[in-house]
Amino acid sequence: MNQEFLEVRGLKKYFEAGRPGLFSKDARKVHAVDGVDLTLRRSEVIALVGESGCGKSTLALLLMGLEDPTEGAVKFEGMDITHLNDSQRKKKELRRKIQMVFQDPYESLNPTQTIEEIITEPLLVHGMANTPDRDERVKKALEDAGLKPAEVYLDRYPHELSGGQRQRVVVAAALVLEPEIILADEPVSMLDVSIRAEIINLLAELRITRQIAVIFITHDLGSVGFFADRVAVMYLGRIVEVGTMLEVLENPKHPYTKALISVIPVPNPRLRHERIILQGETPNPINIPSGCRFHPRCPVAIATCKASDPPMVVVNKSHQAACLLLVK
């Protein structure tokens, strides 16, 4: 069960920041993803946490093959899929096995298609639409995504549904292909707090009933709750801490993780606590700070942090963090 089936090694993606032209002198690079290692096991849920601009969305696009990596490797079930193009990915069933759910359910559904067309389209694309059980599949996907009874929704248009329902439609469109991995990029941040749990519980249920692995990308560690098995904290294009959810929440090692956890609101005024509020904002990924990339905002930085880039330090078997203070 716990075989490693998605493996990422030293993945990098640099974007050109403005083309070198007649008037601009040099081509500067945006270091969106700058050397990421990550493994995902079957039916595992990983929370990928970081502020905007940390490269977490780019990482998702790289894993989906919607952007081409600059360096590094991605392996899926032992097969190197790093530089496959759209049609190769489709042929190797990657476009069926790995699905994505986007942040904004208003934007990720075509307003001119009915719900039925939206759910049938993936089957059509994969040549699975002419089987007799097509209608069954569509209905099952909708009902598995919590839209019951499916008949009520088939003829509707996205604008007739609420935000939560729309996000369920997106999930259903992924489920209809019976995927093995779902990449969810901020799937709840556009929704009201009162219905966020709906989507999170849905994903949690799917990993149990269908053994789907989930990469849950978010800027708000609090919104994941305890739904994730492991958490990976990303800062400026790199993973700075990774470990099991409980372990990281209770015993964070990286100062950035500590700060992130401290600012998670606690819904109880009796538990008001000191928060570690980092000053300033994530630096521009064009100019990565020297040494440890977190040192300019780090509350506990020491002199050497400016000079040397910390390696990933093993805290224990299931917990690693990249901080010089841990190097002993």
Binding site: S108, N110, E121, V125
Partner: peptide, 25 residues
């Protein structure tokens, strides 16, 4: 818009995307 990206992510080809997603809009 994200539904075009999503169409690519489920494996739709360029012609399909233009016909089903770009043209109607």
């Amino acid at each position: 818009r994200k539904f075009v990206l999503r169409a690519r992510a489920i494996g739709s080809g360029k012609a399909h995307i233009i016909r089903r997603h770009i043209l109607p809009l």
